[in-house]
Structure formats: structure tokens, C-alpha cells
């Protein structure tokens, strides 16, 4: 009897551990998704204003293209930080 109860307890514990491991992996995936998603939204908002100004400047002076492009992609770095955080979460 006792050994049957012990086996059952071990099984339940094992199931709990599996469930915990699965939810930890799920939370990591959600964290990674949020890291990329939110930084993507932030970059988009930043690039909206810079991009509009850059297109306006280039429309008047073609020589500004290189500098305008550089300024437009500067907020992209935020997504890269988000991506690094996501990769660390998923593969560390």
C-alpha cells in the first residue's frame, strides 16, 4: 500500500515538475515575444517621425539621402536590443 502511495506521489511530483518546466518555457517565449514586439512598436513610432522628415529633406535636396537614411534607421537599434534579449531568453 505504502509503496503504491509513494509511487503515486512521485508521479504527481514528476507531473508538477513537467508542468513547471513547460510553463517556464512558455513564459520565456512570451517574454521573448514581448521583447521583440514592443521594441518593434517603439522603433516604428520613432521611425515614423524621422522617416517623414527624412523624405521631406531628401525631396528638396538629393544629397541628403545618405544622412537621412542613417537617421531613419537609428531607432532600429532598439529592435536589435530586443532581439538579443529574446535570443538570450530562448537559448540560454
Amino acid at each position: 500500500m505504502a509503496s503504491g502511495a509513494e509511487t503515486m506521489a512521485v508521479e504527481v511530483a514528476a507531473q508538477n515538475l513537467e508542468a513547471m518546466a513547460a510553463s517556464a518555457a512558455g513564459l520565456k517565449a512570451i517574454g521573448a515575444g514581448l521583447a521583440v514586439g514592443l521594441t518593434g512598436i517603439g522603433s516604428g513610432l520613432g521611425e515614423m517621425s524621422i522617416g517623414a522628415a527624412a523624405v521631406g529633406a531628401v525631396a528638396e535636396d538629393k544629397e541628403m539621402f545618405g544622412l537621412a537614411l542613417l537617421f531613419t534607421v537609428l531607432p532600429e537599434t532598439i529592435v536589435i536590443f530586443g532581439l538579443v534579449v529574446a535570443l538570450l531568453l530562448l537559448f540560454s
Binding site: S49, A52, A53, V55, G56, A57, E60
Partner: peptide
């Protein structure tokens, strides 16, 4: 400011 306003102001 919305994008068209920024575009025109910069131009």
C-alpha cells in the same frame, strides 16, 4: 505631429 505635417515642415 502627424507624418504629413512633419514632412511638409521639413521640406
Amino acid at each position: 505631429g502627424s507624418a504629413p505635417y512633419i514632412y511638409v515642415s521639413t521640406r
